[in-house]
Every structure is written in structure tokens, then in C-alpha cells.
Design a protein around this nucleic acid. Sequence first.
DNA 1: CGGCATCCTCTGGGATACTG
DNA 2: CAGTATCCCAGAGGATGCCG
Lengths: 129, 129
Amino acid sequence: MAIHEDVPLTVSPKTRGDVYSADCPCRNLLDVVANKWAALAIGALADGPARFGELQRRLEGISPKVLTATLRRLETYGLVDRTVLPEVPLHVEYELTDVGHSALGPIVALRQWADSNYAHAVAVLSQGK
Amino acid sequence: MAIHEDVPLTVSPKTRGDVYSADCPCRNLLDVVANKWAALAIGALADGPARFGELQRRLEGISPKVLTATLRRLETYGLVDRTVLPEVPLHVEYELTDVGHSALGPIVALRQWADSNYAHAVAVLSQGK
DNA sequence: CGGCATCCTCTGGGATACTG
DNA sequence: CAGTATCCCAGAGGATGCCG
């Protein structure tokens, strides 16, 4: 997947609202949000703005490159605002937009679901193989 | 990402409940569910069992290979049951398990969110670039 | 500090064709 | 029908190193 750029801006009204339609643009958005790092990043911004380094610390194990890519994508789709404070050590803050906040609900729910069900998944995994 | 196999079965109790911990096994589960095709597939199974071909038709644009992979992964983690009816045209049914059903809530919410917010995202996209 | 740049690997995913 | 088999590509993601 993952043609995040060059999204067809001509939206045929017919496809509106049908996630299952192949050319439904909302699939792109789903693809952006429905991914581990994005979900974690959005969650990490739930309590307010945070700086790059702070985010990197919260999302244990993410590489700077991937964090940048993730944030850029979220920014591109208007979920995150990026503010550069021109200080002398550089200071960049990331913050959820309103739309970003609106995504918080489903995403947190998903994370919580994963959290409370991984035990079962691990059990299935171990016996299944 | 994506080491869906060989998940460490030794779960240190400390990591329990912390999605942000790098070695938290729930991240794997999150990774399984938080992906476009998985989300769509689970949604497509919401109303009951469905056969392979039926699913392929519902998830417009998915290739058989990817559909197989998606379903297998969901099966591995105990979200989906796969039943082979030994008939003479082969008949295979996929069905959500209880755990699979429990994922439905967050996932459907996420899809709906994407559906109702892609317009805004497209707008941001078009002006941003 | 917050990044790009580079290199490299791995797999998700598309297309197409073939089989039990 | 429900896959498997191939081929192939783009992108995710890790590791490092450099820079304003």
C-alpha cells in the first residue's frame, strides 16, 4: 500500500462513504492512521504538545527517521501541527490538530483493546505453533 | 516492522499494560489489527461468516495473495476462525472469533472516523502541496 | 536539538498465471 | 473455489553519520 501522495483530488460523489470501494479516498486516511507507529504517536500527543526527542523517548524503539516520517505524514494529512521555535538549541513542537484529536478516541480504544487482548493472542500463538 | 512470528512468549510482568514499552507484546497485536486490510477484513466479517471469494469481492481491490496473508495472520492471532467444508467445489469459511468480535468496536470506529474526515484531509493535502 | 542523507534489508502488496 | 507460485516494486524501518 501506501500511496500517500498524489491522492486523487477528484472525488466522485458516488464513492463517498463506502470504505470498501477501491477508489474511496478515505482508505488513504485509514491507511495513515491504521498503523502501529501512527497510533502510538497520536496517543503520545494526547496530553498536549511534545518535542521530537520527547516523542522518541515515549515511543520506545522508534528510529528518528521513522518518527520523522510518521510525523510528516500525520502533518500532511492535517492531524498534527509542527511548530518550529527558532531558539538556539532548535526547538520543535508537535501538537494534535482538532482533527487529530478527533482520531484519538478510536485509536486509544484500539490500543486498549490490544493491551487487554494480547495475552489471549499469545496463548493462541503458543499452542497453534 | 512486522515480525509476527516468533513473538517472545516470555512476558515479563513489568511490561504488562504499557503499550509504549518497546518489548510489550501487545504492540505485536496492535500491529496486526492496525493495518488497512486487516481493519477492512474484520469489518467485512462483522455480519457473520463469509467465504474467501465473498471477502475478495467485498474488499475491492485486494489481491488473493494479500487476502490470504491477511486472513492467515488474523487466524494466527486467534481473531478469525477458518473452516474448510470438504465439498466438491472447495468451500472455506472465515468467521470472527469472540476476540475478533471484541476488536470490532474500535476498528469500526476507526473506519467511520476515516470516512467522516477524509474530506478534510484531502483539503489539507491539496492546499499544502 | 532535530533533523536530513545514505545504505541496506525485509516484507507488504500488486499482477498474473496455474493447480488440487 | 480457494488458494499457491512467481515476479517485481515501493516503501517501512533499522543503523550510522553529518549538519545548522
